[in-house]
């Protein structure tokens, strides 16, 4: 019997400090939030290192040719974490970094949730939760049918996987032996209302994914080296992979860290931003 009030002992209590690249990417998140005057900072900041390692070291893509056939497909299924994705895509040159300043503006390409067709590099329009894994299954299956080598990576939130459709997709991924599919769970242990344990406990997390037929890894989602090693681990033939990334919601910005109130912020004052930028100065 799990006591929902009991806090989970952190599995990786000693994350290495954020380096300058991680701080730079967070500055891009803040830049977009300043531009739009709003955003989902908490869910984006837990994702930065995951997406950084994916786009720096793992995924095959051409930023100047986003529909390149052989690219790996990466879907940010937790679309509300899009500020992190926008930071990475801007950093990689999928679109000019100035687009961040127009986040959520009337004619912007970057909205509060990512849209395929509007934003170069975005594979699927997400925001309604629990859709990405099914689409990723379809893409991974297509790769198998077409004998293509591309992989499908789907990044989900820990609250998102409350959705039953995620588990329908998980069953299907195992059925079709999609070893070219990687499900990444940003396990920051907070959803909108409160802790995942209080709202809808998904533990035992690793056992669940294993029982659904996945090879499961756990990793500190802010440890760049550890993420690299884990994401480079070859799949077990015939099995999809799930990577549970233990993260901190709002990571890197002290007022936002582990604070459900920072799931979404709007009408932020300019002074608040200068404090946040200061917090990112590498000590």
């Amino acid at each position: 019997m799990i006591d929902p009030e009991q806090t989970l002992e952190p599995l990786f209590p000693n994350s290495p400090p954020l380096d300058s690249r991680s701080a730079d990417l967070r500055r891009l998140v803040l830049r977009a939030m300043e531009g739009g005057g709003r955003g989902h900072p908490g869910p984006a900041l837990s994702l930065i290192e995951i997406l950084r390692v994916l786009y720096d070291d793992i995924l095959l893509y051409k930023a100047n040719k986003p529909d390149w056939k052989k690219r790996d497909r990466c879907i940010l299924s937790k679309g509300h974490g899009c500020l992190a994705l926008y930071a990475l895509l801007a950093d990689k040159g999928f679109f000019p970094v100035e687009a961040l300043d127009e986040f959520c503006h009337f004619n912007a390409i970057l909205g509060g949730h990512p849209e395929r067709g509007k934003i170069p590099g975005v594979e699927a329009s997400t925001g309604a939760l629990g859709h990405g894994l099914s689409i990723g299954v379809g893409q991974a299956l297509a790769a198998k049918l077409q004998k293509q080598a591309f992989r499908s990576v789907v990044v989900m939130g820990d609250g998102e996987i409350n959705e039953g459709s995620v588990w329908e997709a998980a069953l299907t991924a195992a059925k079709h032996r999609l070893d070219n599919l990687i499900a990444i769970i940003d396990y920051n242990k907070l959803q909108s209302y409160g802790t995942t344990r209080q709202v809808l406990n998904m533990e035992p997390m690793t056992d669940k994914w294993a029982a659904f037929g996945f090879t499961v890894h756990q990793v500190d989602g802010h440890d760049v080296e550890a993420l690299r090693t884990t994401l480079k681990t070859p799949p077990v033939p015939g099995k999809p992979t799930a990577i549970i990334c233990h993260t901190i919601k709002g990571k890197g910005l002290p007022p936002a860290e582990n604070n459900p109130a920072w799931h979404h912020q709007s009408r932020m004052a300019p002074e608040q931003f200068s404090e946040l930028y200061q917090a990112l100065e590498v000590k």
Binding site: E123, A124, G130, H131, G132, L133, S134, I135, G136, V137, G138, Q139, A140, L141, A142, A143, Q146, S152, G164, S165, E168, A169, L171, T172
Partner: peptide, 16 residues
């Protein structure tokens, strides 16, 4: 698992 079926069809259609 109809919801997944639709998402899966979408992924397949994205690939041609």
């Amino acid at each position: 698992a109809e919801q997944n079926l639709i998402g899966m069809a979408a992924g397949l259609a994205m690939e041609g």
